[in-house]
Structures are given as structure tokens and as C-alpha cells.
């Protein structure tokens, strides 16, 4: 299995991914994973129809995503995973996906969220999910674009949300 990048982005597939990330790393298979998205036929149709990328597109539940990434079919693919929320990232690991790094992409404001950066707002449950991932030795980064620094973001998250750690 070659999952080359795991990104949490509530916009799912969009301009930054299609333009910047696609030209920065090789992607054979773009997998969108989130249980809610995977049960929304309209969203699945949209994601598959409007992605102008020379890669395979799949929309999977968290469980199906992990199963697929461990399958024989995935062995020769360079897979880019886009999930919606940090909670999805934790669920992926819980279900058995190996990952070294989790990248926080766009996380828009939702009720109860607090600001980490201009483009990332975190909820308490999101921070707790990231903490569990950090404790498992997974590196957390926060890069909208490939040109953003590959900084280890956990210390910054810890410092920004001490009340939630």
C-alpha cells in the first residue's frame, strides 16, 4: 500500500488539491473518505463527475477506505486520501490504516470551534483526535499548499488549545 498523503479538508476535492498538490506529488488514486459523504449519492456523483484530474476517484466510508488501502489492488497505486475532519483521521488509524503523517487542510468554522489559523478552526473533539494520533507517533502538519512549511504542528496545537489537551 502506498498512501502518499493524508489530508483533512472540509472542502474535500477543490482548487488547492487539483492545482497545487496534484502538480507537487504524483497521484494515481484520489480517495475521498467520510462516512456522511459516502452515504450521500448526490455528493458522490458530484465528486466523480467534476474532478478534472488524470487519476482514479473513489468515495469510500472510513471502513471501506482502510479495506481498500490494504487490498492487493492498492499495492501499485499512489494514493492521496482526503477526509473531512480530524476525527476521520483518527477513525482511519483505529480501523488499521498505517500513516506516518496527517496533514490538516482547510477546516472552516463550525459552532464551538476556535481559531488555529486563518484557514483552520478546531473543535474540542478534533483536537482530542489529533492528540490521540500524536500519541501514536503520527506527525501532524498543517499545510494548505505544498509550499507551506512541513512544520510539526502538534506543539502549536498544544499551545493554542491548552484547555482541550
Amino acid at each position: 500500500m502506498t498512501v502518499t498523503h493524508v489530508r483533512m479538508d472540509n472542502r474535500l476535492i477543490h482548487g488547492q488539491v487539483l492545482v497545487s498538490w496534484k502538480s507537487h506529488i504524483e497521484i494515481d488514486h484520489l480517495i475521498v473518505t467520510n462516512d456522511k459523504v459516502a452515504s450521500d449519492p448526490l455528493q458522490i456523483t458530484l465528486l466523480k463527475a467534476i474532478t478534472p484530474i488524470g487519476a482514479k476517484i473513489s468515495v469510500f466510508s472510513i471502513e471501506d477506505c482502510v479495506a481498500y488501502c490494504k487490498s492487493k489492488e492498492a499495492e501499485n497505486e499512489k494514493i492521496f486520501i482526503i477526509a473531512k475532519l480530524p476525527e476521520d483521521g483518527f477513525a482511519l488509524v483505529e480501523k488499521g490504516l498505517d500513516m506516518e503523517m496527517l496533514n490538516l487542510g482547510n477546516q472552516a468554522f463550525v459552532r464551538g470551534a476556535k481559531k488555529l489559523s486563518n484557514t483552520v478552526y478546531m473543535t474540542e473533539s478534533g483536537v482530542k483526535s489529533l492528540r490521540k494520533l500524536h500519541e501514536k507517533g503520527i506527525r501532524i502538519t498543517c499545510r494548505m499548499m505544498p509550499t507551506d512549511p512541513d512544520t510539526d504542528y502538534w506543539p502549536i496545537i498544544e499551545e493554542t488549545f491548552p484547555e482541550w489537551i
Binding site: 472542502r11 476535492i13 477543490h14 482548487g15 448526490l42 456523483t45 478534472p52 484530474i53
Partner: peptide
Amino acid sequence: DLFGATPFNVAMRIYME
């Protein structure tokens, strides 16, 4: 402005609904 990007995706969603 850009095919496949969020403004377009949102417009598609509205078009369908």
C-alpha cells in the same frame, strides 16, 4: 473561476438541487 474547485462544486450542487 475554476472547474472542479469549490465555487464550481457549490454551483453544481445548487444546479442539481
